[in-house]
Amino acid sequence: MTLPDAGGGPLGLFGGTFDPIHYGHLRLAETAREALGLARVRLIPAGQPPHRAAPGASGAHRLAMARLATADNPAFEIDPAEVEAQQASFTILTLERLRAALGPERPLVLLLGLDAFLGLPAWRRWEALFDFAHIAVANRPGYSLDSAALPPPLAAQLAARHATAAGLGDTPAGRIVPFSMTPLAISATDIRSRAAAGHSLRYLLPPPVLDYISLHQLYS
């Protein structure tokens, strides 16, 4: 399934396992929307992440939680295609799918944390990502894209593609743009550990997600 094009302005793309989705994910998406001038942010739960262990919750559960978490924000939308595909979720394949659906002119902006960006050379066909989307990298206090020790191939890409948010709407793909955010000290790994130990998850997740986890006894 491919969502219809909401039209107008750069579209942010935020992929992840979302196992479960939490306030840290939502805050990154909202900060990126505002800092980068994105028209919308499309969250894309992974079906089968290729570089990590199987998720603790099924794709159907993770998709349902993502929908619940974003229901009150009209600038967020959920793309179910990776979960429905029932195959490994490689970013390059996702971008190819979205570019084919949305056309050659719509600016697409792939949102990454700095740690994920530093690992980019290990991704499948990573240099081709720039043919399909811009990449926006979330800096955190004391640790920025400009100060990070980049692998030489990644440093070369940054030197050639570094830009500011102001230019994201001018071209459909190909730029690297940093943006700043204050991360919340929340992790899905910690949430799953807390759930398994029977500890409270309150104030880590949106209430509808918390209720869903309790209803379906996830991670316990």
Rank of each mutant, 00 (worst) to 15 (best):
M1F: 02
M1K: 02
L3F: 05
D5R: 10
G12C: 13
Y23V: 00
H25N: 14
L28K: 03
E30H: 00
R33D: 03
E34S: 07
L38T: 05
R40L: 05
R40P: 09
V41I: 08
I44W: 14
R52I: 01
A53V: 03
G59F: 01
A60V: 01
H61R: 06
A75Q: 10
E77M: 09
A81G: 06
A85Y: 05
Q86D: 14
A88E: 08
S89C: 07
L95Q: 02
E96I: 06
A101L: 06
L102S: 02
P104T: 01
E105P: 02
D115E: 15
A116F: 15
P121M: 08
W123F: 09
R124M: 07
R124P: 00
F130H: 06
F132Y: 13
A133F: 04
A133C: 02
I135V: 05
A136P: 08
A138H: 02
N139D: 13
P153S: 09
A156H: 12
R161T: 07
H162P: 12
T164R: 11
A166I: 00
G167K: 14
D170T: 12
T171P: 07
P172S: 05
R175Q: 07
L184A: 01
I191W: 14
I191Q: 15
R192V: 03
S200V: 00
L204F: 09
L205W: 03
P206V: 02
P207C: 01
P208D: 03
V209A: 12
S214D: 10
